[in-house]
C-alpha cells in the first residue's frame, strides 16, 4: 500500500514538474491590433464533411484571400450543440474583442439576440436563418438548398437506368428537407416515371443505420443515391461497396470520399458572403442584412466530378435548370 502511494505521488510530481517546465517555455503572443479577428462557434466538428466543415473551409479561404494569419486571426469552438455552452463561447469571444463573431447554428438565435446589443462595435453573424432581429450589428445567413437539390435531381433523373432513386436523410427538417424537396421536383421535371424513395433514419449521426438505409435502397433497385447530413458518409460507403451506384452530394464537396461514384455535389460556399461581411465590418457596418446563398449569387455551386462521365444531355439540362432557377422561370415548391 505504501509503495503504491509512493509511486502515485512520484508520477504526480513528475507531471507537475513537466507542466511547469513546459509552461515556462511557452510565452503568450500579444494580439496585433491590425489583425481582423474572427471567432466561430459550430454545433459539430470542423471535419464533418457537411455543415460545419462548409463554414470552416470558407473561413480558411477568406483568411488566405485576405493575406493569411497576419491579416486574419481565426478561432473556433466546435461541437457546441449545447446552447448554454455556445452562449458562453459567443459571449467570451465578443468580450475578448473579436471583430466578427459567428454563431453557425440555427439554435443560437436566442443567444445572438441577447448578446448583440451589449457589443455594438462587434459584428455578429448567425445562421441558418433569415432573422436579424432588427439589430444593426447582426447578419443572418442561410442557403437555398432546394436549388442545388433541383439541379442534382435533374441530372439524376436523366442518368438513372433502373428508374429507381434513393434518398437517405437524417430527420426531415432544415436544409435536409429543402434539399430533398428540390431534388424530388428536379427528378420529376425530367423523368415523370422515376420512383424516388425516401428514408429518414431519425438521427443526424447514426452512420451505421444510414449505411443500412442506403443498402436497402440499393436492394430495392436504386442505381442513384443522394442524401444530407454528416451521417451520409455511410450512404456513400454503401454505394461504393455496391460498385454500380452513383451518388449526388450536398453541403460540401464529397468527391474526395468516393472519386468514382460521386457525380456532382451542391457546395455551400460561404466565402463570398463572409468577404462581404468582413469588408462591411471593417468600414463600420456591423450588420442588419441577411444573406441567402443561391445559384444566382454563386453561393451555391454545382461541383461536378471529372472522374464520372455525365451525358451531354444531362449537363445541358442542368445548365438550363440553373438558368431557369436564376431567372425565375423554374419555381420550386417548398
Amino acid at each position: 500500500m505504501k509503495r503504491r502511494a509512493f509511486l502515485v505521488s512520484l508520477v504526480m510530481l513528475m507531471v507537475m514538474v513537466t507542466t511547469l517546465a513546459v509552461a515556462g517555455a511557452t510565452s503568450e503572443a500579444e494580439a496585433d491590433s491590425e489583425v481582423f479577428r474572427i471567432a466561430v462557434v459550430m454545433p459539430s466538428a470542423t471535419t464533418d464533411t457537411a455543415f460545419s466543415q462548409s463554414m470552416w473551409s470558407a473561413l480558411v479561404t477568406v483568411q488566405e484571400a485576405m493575406g493569411g494569419e497576419e491579416a486574419v486571426e481565426l478561432v473556433y469552438s466546435e461541437n457546441m450543440f449545447i446552447v448554454p455552452d455556445a452562449a458562453a463561447a459567443l459571449r467570451d469571444y465578443a468580450s475578448q474583442g473579436y471583430d466578427l463573431v459567428i454563431g453557425h447554428g440555427s439554435q443560437y438565435g436566442t443567444i445572438i439576440e441577447d448578446l448583440a446589443p451589449d457589443f455594438p462595435e462587434t459584428a455578429f453573424a448567425w445562421g441558418t436563418d433569415v432573422n436579424t432581429f432588427g439589430l444593426d450589428n447582426v447578419y443572418a445567413y442561410t442557403a437555398a438548398a432546394e436549388q442545388g437539390g433541383y439541379v442534382n435531381g435533374v441530372i439524376a433523373g436523366l442518368m438513372t437506368q433502373s428508374g429507381t432513386i434513393g434518398v437517405t436523410g437524417p430527420v426531415e427538417v432544415g436544409d435536409a428537407r429543402t434539399y430533398v424537396t428540390g431534388f424530388y421536383q428536379g427528378v420529376r421535371s425530367v423523368n415523370s416515371e422515376a420512383n424516388v424513395a425516401e428514408t429518414w433514419t431519425g438521427s443526424f449521426s447514426d452512420v451505421a443505420l444510414m449505411t443500412a438505409a442506403a443498402q436497402t435502397h440499393i436492394l430495392n433497385g436504386a442505381d442513384i443515391l443522394t442524401g444530407s447530413s454528416q451521417s451520409v458518409v455511410g450512404s456513400i460507403g454503401a454505394a461504393l461497396e455496391a460498385g454500380d451506384v452513383l451518388w449526388f452530394g450536398t453541403q460540401a464537396e464529397q468527391t474526395t470520399l468516393a472519386p468514382d461514384i460521386v457525380v456532382a455535389s451542391q457546395v455551400y460556399d460561404w466565402s463570398m458572403m463572409l468577404m462581404e461581411i468582413v469588408e462591411n465590418a471593417q468600414s463600420g457596418v456591423y450588420g442588419g442584412e441577411s444573406y441567402i446563398l443561391t445559384l444566382e449569387n454563386e453561393g451555391l455551386k454545382i461541383a461536378y466530378n471529372e472522374g464520372v462521365d455525365v451525358p451531354a444531355e444531362a449537363v445541358e439540362a442542368a445548365e438550363a435548370a440553373i438558368a431557369g432557377i436564376i431567372d425565375g422561370s423554374i419555381e420550386i415548391d417548398l
Binding site: T128, D129, N131, V171, E172, V173, G174, R177, T178, G202
Partner: peptide
C-alpha cells in the same frame, strides 16, 4: 427523441420557419 423529431417536423414546427423556407427543427 423520435417523438420530438416527429412533432418538430409536423404539428410543433415553427410557422415562421415554414414561412421563411428554413424548416428548422424548433
Amino acid at each position: 427523441l423520435q417523438l420530438m423529431n416527429m412533432l418538430l417536423q409536423g404539428a410543433l414546427m415553427d410557422p415562421a420557419g415554414i414561412e421563411a423556407g428554413t424548416f428548422l427543427a424548433q
